[in-house]
């Protein structure tokens, strides 16, 4: 495994193609949960966790159940003449898998660590409709990542999301006390801040990896 390549994927997913500021994925929680630092950190952790898991599971599903290869499970079980091409079912398969995965993680966390559940629990249900999770699954496909690359990309994308979210929460906590024109208060100013932050992140695009 080429470590250098994995490093490039990581840096690219966190800074250059930041999920929120460059790819526009996960905007709803980015605006909705960035009002204070504690919830931003909680949400961020939950997203990193689920995104890594989702990258792993969706890769397995795609490669062993949907893709028309000789290692396709349905090809082996039903000993069909030709490997079936089920890739058109990917949207429906991925969203169902992610929804069940989130439910499952919620149950496990609740059983294993009630303290962790207390800090992450309320964010988990919100994650199903977070387009960043489904987004990372599709991006892994688009980039033709292998199993390890997908996991690394999922984890790094989650870290990038958390970074953007925590930075935003820091700014918004200060903005509470700032004299902002009335119509811009709340969501509009959050978008303007995100715009400025995205300009700063554009600076990373010159990075040569």
């Amino acid at each position: 495994m080429d470590l250098n390549h994995l490093f490039v994927i990581t840096i690219s997913a966190i800074f250059i193609n930041n999920f929120v500021l460059n790819r526009f994925l996960g905007i709803c929680p980015y605006i909705g949960v960035s009002k204070n630092m504690d919830s931003a950190v909680g949400m961020g952790m939950a997203v990193v966790f689920v995104m890594t898991l989702a990258s792993m599971v969706t890769w397995l599903i795609y490669d062993f159940m949907l893709k028309p290869t000789t290692s396709n499970i349905f090809y082996i079980i039903f000993s069909a003449k030709e490997p079936p091409d089920l890739t058109y079912l990917k949207t429906i398969a991925f969203i169902l898998v992610i929804a069940s995965l989130v439910q499952f993680v919620e149950m496990v966390v609740q059983k294993v660590s009630p303290t962790l559940y207390k800090s992450l629990g309320i964010y988990l249900p919100l994650i199903t409709t977070n387009c960043a999770i489904l987004g990372v699954a599709f991006l892994n496909l688009d980039e033709n990542f292998n199993f390890i690359e997908s996991i690394v990309n999922g984890f790094a994308a989650g870290v990038g999301f958390t970074l953007a979210l925590v930075l935003m929460a820091g700014i918004r906590e200060r903005l509470e006390l700032a004299p902002i024109p009335k119509p811009l208060r709340g969501v509009p100013i959050a978008f303007l801040m995100a715009g400025l932050m995205a300009i700063a992140f554009l600076g990373f695009s010159g990075l040569k990896l």
């Binding site: 500021l21 460059n22 526009f24 811009l184 509009p188 100013i189 959050a190 978008f191 303007l192 995100a194 715009g195 400025l196 995205a198 300009i199 992140f201 554009l202």
Partner: peptide
């Protein structure tokens, strides 16, 4: 570019 999207929607 991406920042323009945030700024335009915010305004």
């Amino acid at each position: 570019l991406p920042p323009g999207a945030f700024l335009t929607l915010g305004l």
